[in-house]
């Protein structure tokens, strides 16, 4: 990445911490938002670790690989609180466990830890995009408040953008690299720009007025991180 493009990466990392800052500033008591803040905090920590290892010219791909299941589980646990009934809540908790198992199998068998993720990265993006898309569809079709005033809507849209662009980068880079290598850098900068927008949307969701908890029978209440 050129020096000209470095500022957008820095801006993207900075924007990544905005949802955490929003959660702290609003002293949110909403468990879903708290889990979401923890997930973003783990991303910020990962980026700091990436930065520290990068300035020492060390391979830092392993940090992304190791952080993958942690953030996925945290996001899924946040979404548990946005599900209306015990079946869907339990389904997400089971999905979190199943994801860790599948990630471990891929990590130990086919994944190359010294380079970009070929399997677990796209898997994380696809799992979370499916969950986000489902949450958006449910949010549009139900709930006491208009959808644009609901945290789950903006946070899910933001995450869909973040994971969607991440998922697209591999095939787009693969297409551009042989014919227009310089365009790959532009695409990466574009991805960072979309990420900033995604984090702003998530922050917007974190700042939404508090909504009543999911309506339904909580046969087993999900666990709050705090």
């Amino acid at each position: 990445m050129s020096v000209r493009g470095q500022w957008i990466i820095n801006a993207s990392i900075l924007a990544e911490s905005l949802p955490v800052a929003a959660a702290i500033a609003t002293r949110t008591r909403d468990p879903a938002r708290r889990w979401m803040a923890v997930a973003f905090a783990s991303w910020v920590l990962q980026d700091l670790a990436l930065w520290v290892t990068a300035v020492r010219h060390l391979n830092n791909h392993w940090i992304i690989h190791i952080g993958n299941p942690i953030t996925t589980v945290l996001f899924l646990l946040a979404y548990v609180w946005w599900m209306e009934d015990p079946v869907r809540q339990r389904a997400l908790r089971i999905a979190a466990g199943a994801y860790v198992v599948v990630w471990a199998i891929l990590f130990l068998t086919v994944e190359n830890v010294t380079t970009f993720s070929q399997y677990t990265g796209p898997l994380q993006a696809l799992v979370l995009m499916l969950v986000c898309a489902y949450a958006v569809v449910r949010a549009v079709g139900s709930g006491p408040a208009p959808v644009w005033r609901r945290d789950v809507f903006w946070i899910s849209i933001g995450l869909l953008l973040e994971f969607g662009t991440g998922l697209l980068m591999a095939p787009v880079s693969g297409m551009l690299e042989p014919v227009h290598p310089w365009l790959v850098q532009t695409a990466l900068a574009g991805k960072d720009a979309v990420n900033i927008l995604a984090y702003l949307l998530v922050t917007m969701g974190m700042l939404c007025p508090p909504s009543p908890l999911s309506i339904g029978d909580f046969s087993s209440r999900p666990v709050s991180p705090f």
Partner: peptide
């Protein structure tokens, strides 16, 4: 993963 988790649930 997601379908299996839902069916399991």
């Amino acid at each position: 993963i997601l379908v299996g988790a839902f069916v399991g649930s």
